[in-house]
Design a protein around this nucleic acid. Structure first.
Lengths: 230, 230
DNA sequence: GCAAAAGTGTTAACGTTACACCCATGA
DNA sequence: TCATGGGTGTAACGTTAACACTTTTGC
């Protein structure tokens, strides 16, 4: 056993599906590999777990290196374990998904990475290993979570409008929602504080800006809720 | 890299929280360790993953060795990764939960095991490592799953009565349910076929026996449903 | 003033909850 | 015949679903 805290565990990695939301579309943050195997191809940000590190800390480290942020919503999705998923030796990876608000963070290619950028979920490039499968499962998880936890908000700026929030839910859930029913339901959660500011859109009427009521927000995050709308 | 298919991966194990239901109580299957560390103490059935094995296969192997059955409901709960959770070296374990019907299976102590037996969930012995924590999280998962998948049935015999099913739900959810509302809701799922047989109880009126309608059962397992009753 | 997007209430259908008595069986 | 547990229906309530017009704003 080494006591070098930096030493990595060669058969255990983490990968992060980092979701963002811009201009009405879900996006995923991908990196371009600068090393072999599969040098030059697009992949999920990830890395090996260190000898003295916990899994979630490793995922947080990857998130920090890729986006410069920590302390965002991050959740374990599950283990991916196909025997030949990594070509050089056997690697189990623990997939996570994270929600961040794209505008706010400067992307910096990490070590072993030549490029970082957002891709629309509907327009992903070919990915290395089993990373497409990981994204698919993360998305299933996200869709399920958004119906019982108020995590959708993590994808928006601190101040946001109800039409933005609605488009986010429509995009993730994959179907349209009635505007009046949506507003009724969201406002009844006692989660939002209406601000005096408005958000000017290019065309049409300006939309009122909202923020969370942090107290109720954290309570709801713990307790969960049911969000179902046809 | 060895090509010995039996060789184990020393830092990755699986543990199974095997739930059962007898006489109105949830039970968990535990084994007594016949080897060190913690020889003689009670633990979850588990084992190291083999070099050429997938995680779920390892969990299924553990289930088979412990209970003699395969092909029961088995689901990944998550990874447990505290750095010192295993005293000899670093071991990550992937926790699973399984649902089986206790009566049906002969328990055979596996290798490295001196004893296997069911414990009431409300009366567990002291457990090794972080196994109590694993059970707690598996239970949270089970409670959540039972509200969206018809997995409760996996804990009962092929033929069962509605009062049995209701007590199962009450036990898992932790609160009482109105008998009439429960029956209405369950029967409306179109999941059960009423048999002509009855189950004789020691006292009182006999209860009608039911089985699944397999077709609707599998459909509901895939689609999910919402089961909420106060 | 017109195009574009924001904002606003009511009703009908449905699902959930609460609630009390009769029935079959074994001792 | 009585004690025990199984089996049944209805009304009030709350939630969800469907639906169309007015308001604000920039050009």
């Amino acid at each position: 056993m080494s006591h070098n805290i930096k030493e990595i565990i060669k058969n255990l990695s983490v990968d992060c599906v980092i979701f963002g939301f811009e201009r009405g579309c879900m996006e995923v943050l991908l990196i371009r590999r600068a090393i072999n195997p599969q040098k030059g191809m697009w992949a999920l940000p990830g890395g090996f777990i260190k000898k003295e590190e916990q899994v979630l800390d490793a995922a947080q480290r990857v998130l920090k290196v890729t986006t410069g942020v920590d302390d965002r919503y991050l959740e374990e999705v599950g283990i991916f374990d196909r025997i030949d998923r990594y070509p050089l030796w056997r690697v189990f990876t623990i997939a996570h998904f994270a929600l961040i608000s794209p505008k706010h963070y400067a992307l910096v290619p990490g070590i072993d990475t030549s490029e970082v950028r957002w891709f629309k979920l509907s327009d992903l490039p070919e990915l290395v290993f089993d990373h497409q499968e990981i994204i698919d499962r993360a998305l299933v998880r996200l869709r399920s979570r958004i119906r019982t936890r108020p995590i959708g908000f993590e994808l928006l700026s601190k101040k946001f409008t109800l039409p933005q929030l609605q488009r986010l839910y429509e995009e993730i859930l994959g179907h349209e929602i009635d505007k009046r029913n949506f507003r009724k339901k969201v406002l009844k959660l006692n989660l939002l504080k209406k601000l005096k500011e408005v958000h000017k859109t290019k065309k049409g009427r300006s939309a009122a800006l909202f923020m969370f009521d942090t107290v109720n927000y954290n309570k709801l995050k713990e307790d969960g809720f049911i969000f179902e709308l046809s």
